[in-house]
């Protein structure tokens, strides 16, 4: 409930019709750059940030984030360093931080330890794209116990029954993948998308976050009134690659101006 309450409270503020969640690959290109990028994001109004702990097999990600995972790991970054950085960010900024990673990272770290530490840092949620609820009994029980929101995923292929099943396990918000495929490719917003979002609304009472291929002010404007959170992932990674960390602030600001 904690994360959902935060989202509802933010949405209730004047002139906040949609929230922004951004995505950082920890250690790419470096934790120093991550620190600066996050500072710019927070200063320009981002409400939620998912911090991806890199994994050698990022199966659900597209080329940009795959490369970011790989190059981060090539710097020999450890999970422990990522956790410490997460703690630092939670202490520095008053917004919601989530960890996103693949299940093996959590499994090897020790599932209970991962929850305990994250809770002590005030991490608000976990996004684990390769852990469906059928495989996540322990994980979901711990999420309840430690009050960290397990963010589950809706896809355009999800049936109404599946959506209801997922909703029964989820907390915080529902991550609605805007289209089939992996992260970072352009999404076409059309009637088919609108009917998908309608199905998502029917499927859950949780706030809806829409991600995959959201990269511009036009996209955010389109999502306003349909979704509660727009997720910007690959777009800011590309921006940092092309124009440096300092370009992030104006870009984020421009998304909702």
């Amino acid at each position: 409930m904690q994360l959902e309450n935060y989202i509802r409270a933010e949405l209730a503020k004047p002139a906040k019709d949609i929230l922004l969640m951004t995505h950082i690959v920890l250690g790419y290109p470096s934790l120093e750059v991550n620190r600066e990028v996050i500072r710019q994001m927070v200063e320009n109004g981002v409400e939620l940030i998912e911090m991806q702990i890199p994994f050698s097999e990022p199966m659900a990600d597209g080329p940009t984030i795959v490369r970011a995972n790989q190059e981060s790991l090539e710097t020999n970054i450890t999970v422990e360093e990522c956790m410490a950085f997460g703690q630092e960010m939670c202490e520095t900024h008053g917004i919601a931080f989530l960890f996103m990673t693949y299940y093996n990272i959590i499994y090897k770290y020790g599932v209970v330890d991962f929850f305990k530490k994250s809770k002590s840092y005030n991490i608000q949620g976990f996004i684990v794209p390769d852990l469906p609820p059928e495989e996540g009994a322990e994980f979901l029980a711990l999420a309840k116990e430690y009050e960290i929101a397990p963010i589950l995923i809706y896809a355009p292929t999800s049936s109404p029954e599946r959506m209801q099943t997922l909703a029964s396990y989820a907390d915080g918000f529902m991550y609605c993948v805007a289209r089939k495929g992996v992260t970072g490719q352009k999404t076409d917003f059309d009637l088919e998308f609108d009917s998908y979002i309608d199905r998502c609304r029917t499927g859950t009472s949780l706030p809806l976050a829409v991600g995959f291929g959201i990269s511009s002010r036009e996209d955010i404007t389109y999502l306003t009134g349909k979704a509660d959170i727009g997720v910007i992932g690959t777009a800011t990674i590309n921006l940092v690659n092309d124009k440096g960390a300092e370009a992030v602030g104006p870009f984020i600001k421009g998304l909702r101006d």
């Binding site: 794209p129 896809a155 993948v177």
Partner: peptide, 13 residues
């Protein structure tokens, strides 16, 4: 074993 699959493939599986 198990089936640790992304949600988008649920119906496919």
């Amino acid at each position: 074993g198990g089936a640790f699959i992304p949600e988008v493939l649920f119906e496919t599986f």
